[in-house]
């Protein structure tokens, strides 16, 4: 079963290519800094200097090496994306299981909350939160983790509802199997693959959201680099048109990450389609 899911995944040329790109970007972010002679906050060259042999991607407006900052920034963005995804998936799976399995009043309450969170303009939520608490890495991870769970909850709930009607869950009930067995041994494993697929899109979205928020200055705070706040240099028209090295690499990095994650997710969806399981 698993090997055939793998072969189905490998049939997607684009996804395999994207997986390669994604791995390269991750390696660049994780291992790159070890090969860099500079620290991400160290001023080591001229202001806004174009690329040369000492600074391969040039320097930013206070003279820090942009390649080093790009590596660290990608790291931070991946960290934010991953953590936010893990948090929202955990919340979503737990609430979805509860909502779908127990139903009734609890389900209605949970679904109302879900709708509320879904319909809330989260940029506003983030701005308010950032105004109340200190904006920064942890705050942003928590905020992004908190806004993205409703989708997972709905997905899991729907799955639980349909699984509950299958004969194998019925036969668990008639065999007197306890609730924890039915929930965690039977329902949960059968929900994981759609959740995994959904999580890839949450991952990509979280990276985009991080970039947007940091660009607005509400996310990761300088001097810590992130792909988002590295883009904020492009606010100025002269940089945007005259000094592309200061924003283009960060933008490219975001695009590569988001596009490759989305393609991987698409291929996973096809590979793990339950209709292909039998």
């Amino acid at each position: 079963m698993h090997s055939s899911a793998l072969t189905r995944f490998l049939r997607h040329r684009m996804a395999v290519l994207c997986l390669g790109i994604f791995i390269l970007v991750v390696l660049f972010a994780l291992l790159g800094p070890f090969f860099s002679p500079y620290a991400p906050t160290q001023k080591s060259g001229g202001f806004s200097a174009p690329p040369d042999s000492a600074h391969l991607l040039g320097t930013d407006k206070i003279g820090r090496d942009l390649l080093t900052r790009l590596m660290h920034g990608t790291r931070i963005s991946l960290l934010v994306g991953l953590s936010a995804t893990v948090i929202s998936t955990l919340i979503g799976v737990v609430l979805g299981l509860i909502s779908g399995y127990f139903g009734g009043v609890l389900d209605r309450i949970l679904m109302s909350v879900t709708d509320m969170v879904m319909s809330f303009p989260y940029i506003l939520l983030v701005l308010v939160t950032a105004a109340i608490f200190e904006p920064g890495l942890v705050t942003m991870i928590l905020i992004l983790g908190f806004v993205n769970w409703p989708g997972v909850t709905r997905l899991v709930r729907g799955n639980v509802l349909s699984l509950r009607e299958t004969n194998f869950i019925r036969s668990d009930i008639t065999s007197g199997m306890p609730r924890r067995y039915i929930l965690f041994r039977e329902i949960l494993p059968n929900t994981l693959s759609p959740v995994l697929v959904y999580a890839t899109s949450v991952f990509a979205l979280s990276i985009l959201d991080e970039a947007a928020l940091s660009y607005l200055g509400m996310g990761v705070q300088p001097p810590t680099p992130s792909l988002g706040n590295m883009l904020s240099g492009a606010e100025s028209l002269s940089i945007l048109t005259g000094k592309p090295w200061m924003w283009l690499p960060a933008g490219l990095c975001i695009i590569l990450l988001v596009v490759s994650i989305n393609f991987i997710g698409d291929a996973l969806r096809d590979a793990m389609d339950p209709r292909n399981l039998a």
């Binding site: 079963m1 299958t166 004969n167 194998f168 019925r170 036969s171 008639t174 065999s175 039977e186 494993p189 059968n190 399981l277 039998a278």
Partner: peptide
Amino acid sequence: YQMVFQDAASSLNPR
């Protein structure tokens, strides 16, 4: 008291 269902295919967890 135990039960056997009509649709055997869906009575067994595929995983």
